[in-house]
Structure formats: C-alpha cells, structure tokens
Design a binder for these strands. Structure first.
Lengths: 338, 338
DNA sequence: AACGTTATTAATATCGTTTTCTTAACTATG
DNA sequence: CATAGTTAAGAAAACGATATTAATAACGTT
C-alpha cells in the first residue's frame, strides 16, 4: 500500500544528474543547461515527485506556516477572519494552523507558546488575554511577527487591526437619538476589560452625553458576549419600571439572546422596543423585522491582518500600525425606520 | 533580537552528556540513570529548549499534522466541524492545518494533493467533488487515512460520518402531514449530485408518497444551498396559483434567503405559510417565529470524524465504517405548532 | 580471577533537502 | 595563444533530531 517516497535522489538518478543539480532545477535557479533542466523536470514529473517539506524546512529554517489563534472557530466573527487569512496565505503558498482557545486565557497562552515552538513564521491572534507578559516576552525573544485583531492591548512591537468601536457605537446611538428621538436607550455590553467592549461602551456614553442625555447605569448590562446572559439582561431591562425604548446589543450573539426573550414574551420590535446590533451577519437581515446594524468587517479584518503580517514576515521594518476599520450604518426596520 | 535557537546539542553540552542521551531523556526512554536524567532536564529547562519539529519529522517520518478540508470556514456548519476536530486533536498533540475550498472542485482537488504532499497524517474532508478519481488514487497510493463528512461518495477504503438525511427529511415532512394536515408542501433543495441534497429530497418524497400525497415537481426548487437562489425560489413558490402551505428549507442558508423574501413581502409565518429548516443554529431559535428544525449535529460530526481518523492513524484495520447521525426534531412555532 | 550479563553512555549513520566549495569546460579578450 | 571570466555540474557539508550499533562500567557467578 504505502510505497517508498520518491526523493530528490531518485529524481536525480532518473535524470542522470547529481542531487544538487536536481535541487537547482526544481528551485528555478540559474546555471543549469536547458537540456538538464528538461531532463530533471521530466524525471520529476514521471516519478511524481513531491518534496519532503520537513527536510526543506530544516535546511531553510523556514516553515511556510502561519499560526491563527482565536477564541472560537464556530463563532461567525472569528471564522470569517480565518477565512480571510486562509485565502490570503494559501495564495502565497503558506499553510495556516489553527488554535482554538475556547475563551480560556491559559489555553491561549499555551497556544501562543506552542505556535512559537512550532516555528510558525507569524501569528494572527484574537486575544482575550489580560496578562500580556507572555505575549510581550515571546515577541521580544523570538522576534516572530504578530498581528492582533479585534482587541487593543498594551503590547509593543505588534500590529493591530481593530474596529473603530467608539465611533461606530456613537453612530448607532446617535441614529436612535437624532432620527427617532429616543432618550431611554439601554445597552447589552461586552466585558469592559476588553477594548472591544470598553470602547463600544465609551461610544454609547459619548453619544448620550453629547446629546444632553444623562447616562443611566441601570441601562447598562454586561453580558460578556454571551447569549444566555443577554437573555437574562433583556429580562431585567424589560422588568424595570422605567423600561428602555431601545436596546443596543454590542454583538450578534447577544442579539440572539435578546431576541429570544423578546419573541418568547411577544414583545414587538420596534413598536414596544427598538433593537440594534453591532455586527451584521447574514441572518440579521433575515430576522423579522430585519435588524439595524453596522456593515460586516470581519472578512476585511482577516484580509488586512494577513496583509500586514505578510509584509512583516518579508522583513518590513516600518512603524507598528494600528488600523481601524470604520463600517457604515446599515439601517433596517428594527430601529423604527421605514 | 532573534537569538540562535537552542538545540539538543546545546542541552547535551550543558548537561555534560552526549546528544543521543539527551534525546533519550527528553523522549522518556529507559536506560538512563536518574542523575543524568535530572541533569538533562535541568539543562533543557535552563536553556529554554524547544525541539526543532522539522528535524524530528524528518527523522521520524511523521508530522503530527492533520489536514481539514472544507468548502467554507465561515459557514456555521463547517466551522463547527472544525471546532470539534481541533479540540480532539489538540489534546492528542496534533496540529490541524486548514484548507478552504470555496466550493470549488478544482481547489478541493488541489487541497487534497497539497495536504498529501505535506505529509499530513490524516485528512478530514467535506467534499463537493464529483470527480472521485483524485481521492481514490491518493488513498490507494499513499495510504493516508481519510474520513469524509457530510457527503457520501463512491470511494473505497474511507470512513464516512454522515447525517441520516433520508429519515430526517422524512421526519420533518411527516410532522407537517400528520400533525398539521398539510398536503401542499414545497421544498427548497440542495443540489442532487451531492448525497446530502439527494437523500434529503428522497426523504421528502418518501414522506409524501407514504402518506398518499402525489409529488408535485413544481414544488421542488433546487437552490444549491445558496441564500440568493432560495430567495428567488421562494418568490416563485409564492407566485404560483396553487401556493404551498409549507416550505421546507434543506439548510440554514436557504432558510435565510427564504425568510428574507417572506419578511420583505410581509408574508406571515406560519399563518400564511409554514416554514421548516433542516439545520438548527443559534439564531434559528431567535427568529420570529422560532423555526422548527432538527437538532444540531455538526459538533458531534466533527468529533466523531476526528475519533475515527485518530484510530486509523494509530493503525486500526477494521472494516471501513459509515456512521449515520440521526438528530431528533426540535419543534418550534414556524410549523404552526403551539 | 575470568567471564558473561546487564545497565548506561557514546559514536555514528540517517532522514531529504539546500548551500557552500570545487572543478571542468567553455567564451571572450587582448 | 595565453589568460581571465563565466557557466555548468558534482562532492561534501550542514540543518537538528533519533535509531542503530558499539563501547564501557558495574556486577554477579563459577
């Protein structure tokens, strides 16, 4: 069943040349005669030769492998990032190996170390880590290029690809205030020790304050990006004496939790309460009513991160960047429009 | 910045032993004195040694890498499979490298060849390929264990992990007939040259026939798993003289397309038309009304496939299996229940 | 005391590449 | 025609690990 692998030696022998010559041909180097080149290529084709990558890696000290470390592949946001990264690097002839951290800080830490020990050429990381020492020391010590997506943390010598969370949140809330005249706006927020949560809340508050509406702490529910907690939060919000007129969900997961409760109780959107979400996914526009959101950026984010990483791998030495993507509003019916 | 990598030689020197001895210690082999073992481990720790995997692979002729080939990571169904596979194999100390085929047969073919040439130890494949020669010849020639998920194709010496599509479709339709008395049931189907599409249609037809309802070809729309085509199909169905009482979407993507049309036109579910879907994802239960579906199996599928593959990698020689997962109905309101 | 046995370590070969380093042959130049 | 320069190809070394084989030490047996 399993035959002996064809090596360069076999190809060389078949073509009647030395091994290094065969190597030179297959790597498209100069200084080989056309006759020999032809013979070697022909032999390689005939024998169906495929190079042994581990030998090549060993010699060349490069693996052509990229590490992608994310909290959850089965989350639309992250899997879209992975899609972009895979597409970009596949074309460049690099493989990506995937690490799923399950939102566990220790697993993330282990994943980073593992990736480094496997000599990946670069890492794209969607971090949930609060302890940045590991990251910092690995970057310092091994000099592996690192691009962090979605969350800003305090680490040097790293590129970031982020969403312009503050302004985006701001835009959503201003729409509610300016167009619909709402004043009682609640939000279901992510955790505040992640910049993507913190900044979104910042934008929310800024929009209120700029428009002379006092921030009401009761209207802010932290649901840690989770459906079940958002469900609970929605229940609490609707059982208040001073019910909000609108609920702003800071990601799509929490939107799902929120809508589950609303549908269960027969609360009408947007008549009884308006609903907004940050992320726009396919199903958001298929909801009844379709939900107002911001344009999708995950695909773009993956692509941008990949591009940046690629340039670093190829030795670009420029200042470390912090790219902010700024999606536009996608107005649908759940906010009360139309 | 980037220091010289620490090799086993350095460790050996530091510990004052030979290289092979250091190797034996780190691989937990017998025939080393406790004193030496301690010295080597200590040296390795002090120098922060990490093995060079390509060297190890070269010598051992094993890569500890699994290939996962799927049409689209950013599709919930497939990313959930990936999640299961990653979790399983991470624990076994194996990496997974991801190939996204973008639903393109040629890319899939290339991915398989690439995976093989990278000497992955096994492959998990969600295929859309109609030309099975490539698969067959690779399995034959290289003897790499292969587990195919979601679609049955005509290939020998391969394990399958599938959904019991015929019976599941049957269950859904029978529910519509028996409980709700519907007779005019349309379906939006996947392509029929994939078993997952063909078998679902088979179950649909069987349910009708077994209950004495003639199959009406006009009620069968092929939408190739796509949102846009499902949108179009829904439009066609609702513009028929003899409108269906219920629409059965064979996957969640097509459900989204279908619902988009229904919501846009203000068609009431389930009063004007009942709706069913095959796949159940988080958002399906957050829709208004929540949509009746079958239990999720994607996570389970990934795990099962990984287990099977792992056993093959470890040399299990038993008969090749065809595992069928059989999810139960999840009855919600979109079918007219409650 | 001589020998065999066993536990521990070292020396060497090997995996499949690519990178020097050489050497040979050919070309151009005066 | 001599000499330098260029092109083409091979020989040998290297990458970092492990497997195989050989060597040594310690020990018990007779």
């Amino acid at each position: 069943m399993k035959f002996k692998n064809i090596t360069l030696k076999d190809v060389a022998k078949e073509a009647g040349v030395s091994v290094p010559t065969a190597s030179r041909v297959l790597n498209n180097e100069k200084f080989v005669s056309d006759a020999v080149r032809e013979r070697v290529l022909d032999a390689a084709r005939r024998l169906n030769y495929t190079p042994e990558w581990s030998a090549r890696s060993l010699r060349l000290r490069k693996t052509d492998v990229i590490g992608v470390i994310i909290p959850n592949v089965a989350d639309y946001f992250f899997s879209s990032i992975v899609l972009g990264v895979e597409k970009f690097f596949r074309e460049k002839g690099k493989d990506i190996i995937l690490f799923n951290t399950s939102n566990d800080e220790r697993i993330e830490e282990r994943a980073i170390k593992l990736a480094v020990s496997k000599r990946v050429e670069g890492i794209i990381l969607a971090t949930i880590c609060r302890n940045h020492n590991v990251i910092e020391s690995l970057v310092e010590e091994f000099g592996i290029p690192l691009v962090i997506v979605d969350n800003k943390i305090d680490v040097k010598n790293v590129d970031f690809v982020l969403c312009d969370d503050v302004n985006c949140s701001f835009k959503l809330i201003e729409h509610l205030i300016n167009v619909h005249g709402y004043k009682k706006i609640a939000c279901i927020s992510g955790p505040l020790d992640e910049s993507s949560g913190f900044d979104k809340l910042l934008g929310y508050k800024k929009a209120l304050i700029d428009n002379g509406i006092p921030v009401k702490e009761d209207y802010i529910k932290i649901a840690y990006w989770k459906k079940s907690k958002a469900y609970e939060a929605t229940r609490e919000l609707l059982s208040m004496d001073n019910k909000p007129e609108a609920i702003y969900c800071m990601n799509a997961n929490m939107l799902i939790g929120c809508l589950r409760y609303l549908n269960e109780k027969g609360v009408k959107v947007p008549d009884d309460v308006a609903v907004l979400t940050f992320d726009d996914y396919d199903y958001v526009s298929a909801l009844n009513p379709p939900v107002t959101a911001l344009e999708r950026i995950d695909l773009d984010m993956g692509l941008k991160a990949a591009e940046l990483l690629y340039r670093r791998i190829n030795g670009e030495k420029s200042e470390y960047k912090e790219i902010r993507i700024s999606p536009e509003l996608v107005i649908r019916k759940s906010c009360g429009c139309k």
